[in-house]
């Protein structure tokens, strides 16, 4: 059972109301054991639904990585929260779930979070010579030739 395997790995697991939140179980984990967690989900025939990130540097001095796993058959959506300290790398799970490859590239592109062990960590949405990470809270896009000068943006 996935619950037994996860209970050894995660710090905290809470069952939540699916109707209100859209998922069944919420876990908090240390980022170091993300590959073990991914292995556990893979062995139970779960698939990766998405990875995203939150910029919580202002309050918690952390980037929160959010992983969602689900399975066919009985719906059972698990959400993993893993906080990492800014300027440290998170372990990549792209070798376990190939679907994670582009998600991790997107998080690198938008937030600047790097992933150890990723096969090809480069920008995915912005052009390759772009200078910043647009979804950071303190991001400001400097004037550039692609923007209008009429003050509307």
């Amino acid at each position: 059972m996935i619950a037994d395997k996860l209970s050894l790995l995660v710090l905290d697991a809470t069952e939540v109301k699916y109707d209100a939140r859209g998922f069944h179980v919420q876990h908090t984990a240390s980022p170091n054991i993300l590959p073990q967690i991914a292995d556990a989900f893979l062995s139970e025939n779960f698939h990766l639904e998405m990875i995203t990130c939150q910029d919580r540097r202002e309050n918690d001095n952390a980037f929160r990585l959010i992983y969602q796993f689900n399975q066919y058959g009985t719906p059972q959506r698990h959400v993993i929260h893993a906080d990492i300290v800014p300027d440290t790398a998170a372990p990549s799970i792209a070798t376990i779930f190939p679907a994670a490859d582009w998600y991790e590239r997107e998080i690198f592109d938008m937030y600047g979070v790097t992933f150890d062990g990723h096969p090809d960590l480069k920008r995915i949405l912005m052009e390759e010579d772009y200078f910043g990470h647009p979804l950071l809270k303190d991001f400001v896009d400097p004037p550039n030739p692609y923007r209008s000068e009429d003050g509307a943006s």
Binding site: L125, M126, P134, F139, V140, D141, Y146, R147, S148, A152, S153
Partner: peptide, 11 residues
Amino acid sequence: KYPGQYAIVEG
């Protein structure tokens, strides 16, 4: 096109 957009060419 909105203040702070970073993704598109405005025209």
